[in-house]
Amino acid sequence: MARFGMVIDTRQCVGCMDCVVACKTENDVPDGFCRDWINQRLEGTMPDLRLTITSERCNHCDRPPCVSCCPTGASHVHEFGRIVLVDHEKCIGCKACLASCPYGARFIHPDGYADKCTFCIHRVEKGELPACVAVCPTYAMHFGDLDDPGSELNRLVASRRHFALKPDAGTQPRIFYLE
């Protein structure tokens, strides 16, 4: 069974926000909310500065705290690619999943249910890429099966220094950033 993840090259990402706009358009994300976003982290002292741009979203963790705390089973790991999803018809809007996510990746949709990135499962099931990956103009984003030893993701992760977000939170995120 596949285990989908992403690898994002921070050297190629220019923070253009195409991924954010594509996600909002593809998934009809309401105004004032976002399922993915851009972070710019500037560190160091002049003139030795380092700027890291990261396109962030739900990390579809291998140990998702949002799933284990959900009282109704609305938050679940889908058997297709082990994508973490929310069943809107089961969600009561208790917000435990929002509080349990160290990435702040979830929000309450104006209709009342918890919402977040789905890795565009409706596209991936048809063999297409998630919208954010498909539109990236610098080809910084890569999507695929982390359990496939020959996948592009595993080749990239093996060949470059990389990091995941908040690894000490213990959630085992499945999005990796190439340094």
Partner: peptide, 19 residues
């Protein structure tokens, strides 16, 4: 120096979580 700029501004989550 460490500066963090984010484009995310989701209600209840940003700038600090208050669900």
């Amino acid at each position: 120096m460490l500066e963090l700029v984010t484009t995310r501004d989701n209600p209840m989550i940003d700038p600090a979580m208050h669900v």
